[in-house]
């Protein structure tokens, strides 16, 4: 079974480019489906820890999307930062506020029709305009972007935004300590 799988993977690089495209589309469909389902589950589940785990699936799916788009560095960063750090932070947040939720009123606000309406509105407007503008535009990326390229760009063209981000992170760090600190 495993050898079969490996053989298949080995075979991948001998594929014709059209076959690669088919494979990519298949992967896209699977990942996209999983992502959308997990996202829906996440926003509707009652159990908040489960929600966090569904979020992990969505984030991992997004990383897969990045790889399909040839952005490997972003994919790695996504996994490192999101799944590695932010989710852990969320789990801590959940843990520290555990038991805060009585079931008497439920996890959701009473009138959620408005929210559904807004969500559908967003999807309609966004997809409508996407389809209108790009219809069957193909992605014709020749080679994936390399980490070196990204590094060069960040440290030359985007150096000032980069510094600004680092200051922002510092400010957020100090800010969150100040906010969460217990006042004497």
């Amino acid at each position: 079974m495993v050898s079969l799988f490996v053989a298949q993977i080995r075979g991948l690089d001998q594929l014709e480019s059209s076959e690669v495209l088919v494979a990519q589309n298949v992967f896209f469909a699977i990942i996209a489906l999983v992502m959308v389902l997990a996202a829906l589950k996440m926003v509707t589940t009652e159990n908040i820890v489960h929600a966090a785990l569904y979020l992990v699936i969505v984030l991992a799916g997004a990383a897969g999307m990045f790889i399909l788009l040839g952005a490997e560095f972003i994919a790695v960063t996504q996994i490192l930062v999101y799944i590695g750090a932010i989710i852990v932070l969320f789990l801590f947040g959940i843990m520290l506020t555990k038991g805060s939720f009585g079931t008497e009123e439920g996890e959701f606000i009473e009138k959620s029709q408005m929210a559904v309406l807004v969500a559908v509105l967003i999807v309609t407007v966004a997809s409508g305009s996407f389809i209108d503008s790009f219809r069957y535009t193909e992605l014709s990326r020749e080679a994936p972007s390399t980490t070196a390229e990204i590094g060069d760009t960040i440290f030359s063209q985007f150096i000032i935004p980069f510094e600004a981000i680092s200051v922002l992170l510092l400010a957020a760090l100090i800010g969150s300590v100040v906010i969460a600190r217990r006042d004497q």
């Binding site: 407007v125 409508g128 305009s129």
Partner: peptide
């Protein structure tokens, strides 16, 4: 919700 709805409608109008 109102904010999101209004922003989406505005975006749609712009498009």
């Amino acid at each position: 919700a109102i904010l999101f709805a209004a922003a989406t409608i505005l975006a749609g109008l712009l498009i």
